[in-house]
Write a protein that binds this DNA or RNA. Structure first.
Length: 199
DNA sequence: AGTGGGATCTGT
DNA sequence: CAGATCCCACTA
């Protein structure tokens, strides 16, 4: 039996980022453009950032840049970095708690198949996936819900079953590109995925 | 008002 | 491993 595709509801994101992050692996990120065109990708790599975490943009205090992280779970936090790239985060936890999950890699859907190696690398990295999906700061602080420019759909039953059978597995390890908080094991990825940012 | 560093990526 | 390239938080 096939279940209807709907967006994950906001309350699901109102948990610590370290709880939401691994649960996001296998979910689908949906990007809807203003002309109605839709692109979908499966989330295969994430990192959690939270309070008491020196690497977190919200570690010190609230500023205009990190304000989105203090919103309630279920909103977007998009920031610009290195003069060239944007990065997409999913805000987590209650309003007032500065935390989010960085989406680091997607496996893009392709119609029609097959998925080539090149397509697998299109969204293999936080900067690359934003470039591919035209995500910039105009999409900061938007609610993730059906009909918005971005939303997230839950794991398919097929994916859940594969996890239970251990045909698929998550790997938990340390985060990438940081100068602080480098030992916290808050990065998760889907084992064996060809779309991981650093293989 | 000036400045240094940053949750990146690409090519050498 | 250097370079591209811009925003913003911090210092003064």
């Amino acid at each position: 039996m096939k279940t209807k595709n709907t967006a994950i509801e906001q309350s699901w994101f109102v948990r610590p980022s370290t709880a939401v992050a691994p649960d996001l692996i296998g979910c689908t990120l949906v990007r809807q453009f203003s002309d109605g065109e839709i692109k979908r990708g499966t989330i295969v790599e994430v990192e959690a950032y939270g309070p008491e975490d020196p690497a977190c943009h919200a570690y010190r205090k609230q500023t205009p840049r990190n304000a989105a992280m203090f919103m309630a779970g279920g909103y977007s936090y998009v920031y610009f970095i290195y003069g060239m790239y944007h990065c997409l985060n999913i805000v987590t936890d209650r309003a007032g708690v500065g935390s989010a999950v960085l989406i680091r890699a997607l496996e893009m859907e392709n119609n029609p198949p097959p998925i080539t190696k090149a397509i697998q690398r299109l969204a293999a990295g936080p900067g690359k996936l934003c470039r591919h999906l035209n995500i910039d700061r105009t999409l900061n602080q938007i609610q993730l819900d059906l009909g918005q420019p971005l939303w997230i759909e839950p794991r398919s039953q097929q994916f859940k079953t594969a996890l239970e059978n251990q045909n698929k597995a998550l790997v938990q390890t340390t985060r990438i590109g940081l100068s602080q908080g480098i030992d916290l094991p808050w990065r998760w990825y889907l084992k064996g995925s060809g779309a991981i940012s650093k293989l």
